[in-house]
Amino acid sequence: MTAIVLHDLGSRRESRAWFATAARAAAESGDPQLHAWVLAREAMVPLNYGAPRAAAALADQARHAAGTRPTAAAVLAAAVAARAHALNHQSEQARAALTAADALMNRLPEPERSDTWLTYGEQKHHVHLSHAFTTLGDTRRAQESQQRALELSAPTSTMTRTLLNIDAAACSHHDGDTEQACRRTVAALTALPVDYRTGLVRRRALDLYEAIPAQHHHEPAVQELRDISVG
């Protein structure tokens, strides 16, 4: 839990250190599903902070540990692998992992779909799908997952809802409306208290800014995005 909170805050080195401890303990526990879950969650550190190849390697380890049974860890590992491959511009591998994640999700027993740290419900699934499809440029399917994830997310799920809104903004950019993308992202961040505009949320906004071609960086909406994401 500590590793995940540190990840969300942007403390990558500390998060990886805590994950290393968690992975050792999980491996020693003899519970392969717990070990797979820890590895899949650890993969989200490099995934979200600029090292998708390392994320894919960890996600593949998690998938191997989880095996082929429909478990929360197995679905999570496949979904994270899909996101990592998408970021690596490996669309074929990403879509294969998405197909595997959906197949596992459809067979996931009801107790593993509850809303706890170690389970994997529909809301979590659509959050992962949103980012994967957004990265792949499949904006129609990304928007479907964004809408469903927002429907299932509590109003108090501040970070999740903000990340989904940034995914939606990235879809606008991909579809050719960069100004709208910037304004949506700025609106999502300014709606947050200042202390929340850090870590993962700030990184995702910066990813969008860096995806915008340099010739647009002089435009007011793009500059406003830069100001709020770079700080």
Rank of each mutant, 00 (worst) to 15 (best):
V127Q: 06
T160G: 12
T119G: 06
A154S: 15
E179V: 14
H125V: 08
I166M: 07
L136C: 09
A103L: 10
Q143G: 12
D115K: 02
Q123Y: 06
A187S: 07
R113E: 01
N165G: 10
H125Y: 06
W117M: 05
L150E: 07
D138F: 00
T178Q: 12
T156L: 08
C182T: 00
R183V: 00
E110T: 15
N165T: 13
H126E: 05
T134P: 00
L136W: 04
Y120F: 15
S157Y: 15
R183Q: 10
T158N: 06
R113T: 09
A170K: 03
D102P: 01
A101R: 04
L164A: 12
E122H: 11
A154V: 04
T156P: 04
T178S: 06
T158W: 12
Q143V: 02
H128K: 08
D167M: 07
R161M: 10
D167A: 08
I166F: 12
D167G: 01
A103Y: 02
T134D: 03
W117L: 11
R161P: 13
A149M: 05
L136P: 03
G176H: 09
Y120N: 14
T119A: 15
T135N: 07
T99H: 14
A132N: 03
T156H: 13
L164N: 04
G176K: 09
R140C: 01
T178P: 00
W117N: 11
S114C: 00
Q180T: 11
P109M: 03
K124F: 02
K124Q: 02
A169D: 05
K124W: 01
M159N: 04
T135G: 08
E179H: 08
L163D: 01
L98V: 15
T99R: 15
T116K: 07
D102W: 03
T158G: 03
N106P: 03
E112C: 12
T156V: 12
R107Q: 13
L164I: 13
G137Q: 00
R107D: 10
P109H: 11
E179C: 07
T116Q: 04
D177K: 04
R113K: 12
H126K: 04
R183I: 00
R140V: 08
A142N: 09
A181C: 14
D102Y: 02
Q146T: 14
L129N: 09
D102S: 03
A101W: 06
T162E: 04
C171S: 10
T158S: 09
S157N: 14
A169F: 10
R107L: 15
A168S: 03
K124G: 01
E122W: 13
A169R: 07
A187N: 03
S153T: 08
L108C: 08
T134K: 09
H128R: 02
L152D: 04
A154H: 13
E179F: 01
L118K: 09
